[in-house]
Simulated scan of single mutants.
Amino acid sequence: MTQDVEMKELPSNSLPSSSTPSTLNHLKEIASLIETGAHAREVRRIFRAVRLTMALRRKLKPPVLSAFLNYVLTPGSDVHTRLISFLPKEDDHEMEVDTASSVTQVSLKHSLPEIEIFCYLLVLIFLIDKKKYNEAKACSSASIARLKNVNRRTVDVLASRLFFYYSLCYELTGDLAEIRGNLLALHRIATLRHDELGQETLLNLLLRNYLHYNLYDQAEKLRSKAPRFEAHSNQQATLIF
Results as ranks from 00 to 15, higher is better:
Met1Gly: 10
Met1His: 14
Gln3Asn: 12
Ser14Gln: 13
Leu15Trp: 11
Ser18Thr: 14
Pro21Thr: 14
Leu24Ala: 09
Ala31Val: 03
Leu33Met: 13
Ile34Phe: 10
Glu35His: 13
Ala38Ile: 00
Ala38Trp: 13
Ala40Trp: 09
Thr53Asn: 13
Arg58Ser: 15
Arg58Ala: 13
Lys61Gly: 10
Pro62Leu: 05
Pro62His: 07
Leu65Ile: 11
Ser66Leu: 11
Ala67Tyr: 08
Pro75Arg: 09
Pro75Thr: 01
Gly76Ala: 07
Asp78Asn: 12
Asp78Phe: 04
Arg82Ser: 10
Leu83Thr: 04
Ser85Asp: 08
Lys89His: 14
Glu90Gly: 08
Asp92His: 09
Asp92Thr: 15
Thr99Ala: 11
Val106Tyr: 13
His110Cys: 02
Leu112Glu: 10
Glu114Lys: 14
Ile117Val: 07
Ile117Met: 09
Ile117Arg: 04
Phe118Trp: 12
Cys119Met: 06
Tyr120Thr: 00
Tyr120Gln: 00
Tyr120Ala: 00
Leu122Met: 04
Leu124Lys: 10
Leu124Met: 04
Asp129Lys: 11
Lys131Pro: 01
Glu135Thr: 08
Lys137Gly: 05
Ser140Arg: 02
Ser143Lys: 02
Ile144Lys: 07
Ala145Asn: 08
Asn149Phe: 01
Ala159Cys: 05
Ala159Gly: 02
Ser160His: 03
Phe163Tyr: 13
Phe163Val: 00
Ser167Thr: 06
Glu171Tyr: 13
Glu171Leu: 12
Gly174Lys: 11
Ile179Pro: 04
Ala185Cys: 00
Ala185Ser: 11
Arg188Lys: 10
Thr191Trp: 06
Leu192Phe: 15
Gln199Tyr: 02
Thr201Asp: 01
Leu203Ala: 03
Asn204Pro: 03
Tyr210Asp: 10
Tyr213Arg: 09
Glu220Gln: 07
Lys221Gly: 04
Leu222Lys: 03
Leu222Trp: 01
Ala237Phe: 09
Phe241Val: 14
